[in-house]
Write a protein that binds this DNA or RNA. Sequence first.
RNA 1: GCGCCGGUCGGAUAGCGGCUAUUCCAGGAGACUGUAAAUCUCCGGCCUCACGGCAUCGUUGGUUCGAGUCCAACCCGGCGCA
Length: 407
Amino acid sequence: MSSFKFTIQSKLGGGTLARAGVLETAHGQIETPAFVVVGTKGTVKSLNPEQVRDAGTQVVLANTYHLYLQPGDEAVKKMGGLGKMMNWSGPTMTDSGGFQVFSLGAAYKKGISKVVQTVDPSLLIPERFDDSDAPRLAKIGQDGVSFTSHLDGSVHYITPEKSIQIQHNLGADIIFAFDECTSPTEDLKYQEEALERTHNWARRSLEEHNKLNSENKVALFGIVQGGREERLRKDSAKFISEVEVDGKKFDGFGIGGSFAKEDMSTAVKWVNSILPEDKPRHLLGIGEPEDLFMGIENGVDLFDCVLPTRLGRNGTIYTKTGKIHIMNTEFRTDISPIENDCECYTCKNYSKAYLSHLFHGKEMLAGTLASIHNVYFLVNLVKQIRQSIIDGTFFEFKKSFLEKYLK
RNA sequence: GCGCCGGUCGGAUAGCGGCUAUUCCAGGAGACUGUAAAUCUCCGGCCUCACGGCAUCGUUGGUUCGAGUCCAACCCGGCGCA
């Protein structure tokens, strides 16, 4: 019997796709919608597991590519698997390495990221032309992707089968199919080719997963791609929903891709109106508070994002009235906490002036305290949104929050 | 008092007589969305600082087409000798 189960508790209705539910895994429940905290290399940067848990985190996502390179998936397995290794007793997920196809490939050293401001037409064509001399650490082949390790220059060929094998060794509760996250600067023809590849890889991922999942403890999510094109997104949602190997389908879904900000909500809407309602949907790599409201309203159950920890380490801190740069002059003498009514460890114990001092002094604790607050802020925001779905107050909450936050 | 060495941005530095005086740190601002990120980018003399223009290398002179760079005197600092 599978240890994975998704139950919808409450739907918002009113023309939205929003719902609140519970996801059961071998390592405990996740109340959804939920914000998944990213711990790429088997650690949430600058935080220990107690700090991660105390910030309200329910589930941690690590990365297949990084752990495969170092310390190696066999080593992780020997240490008892991802959760045991990092002393995190709750649910875990691993990303397939598909994002690194993008971040170390088409996006490498090009200033293109997960969410881009707009799709600049001048960027659209040349990208595919200078393929030969464009530096990239990931190159897409017929069967999979060859990666040049940023650590030692060694070359590794990752296929869908390999990604799934690695992920089974890592031992997370929820794993993802190997996909190609495309750049929004690619043209339609390329998006079509890439999507065909992603679908092919999805089927192979599912097939390999079935072989390795005899105990039925691990859930596999398929990933929908398709760029900004409605037809491709819908085709992808349909394919990933229906693809079946040996009578088995995906347990849930990821929605992937690098987005122009304005394209994100349409893509999510197209996809989630097609994906089966009774399985969880994960919007990969998102996001900012306004994106969380958007996603949840459009039927997303899970989000993961590096922002709370990356911004925290870099001195940017979330507040209900927008983000602040804690190193700015004005905070050097501000002895109030980041937020007076925040229940996080950082706000209950420290002032902005102290945080500012820690950052200026390059003290390690700076990134830790800022990350604690940022993680708490986003995890707690999603919890509040979840409650507002149950209470039927989603729109009031969204309006009051975003009015202050976006100013 | 004599001799030697040295004075370049807030600090530390680079700078064959020739182009926009270098780099690091500090300071200021910004960026970051399935993490090659405790990282990266930009700004830091003046003039309506965008364009363009004018300054500036302890001070004052000098040599030179041209001086941060060479010369002299002076001022300051360090070391040595009295």
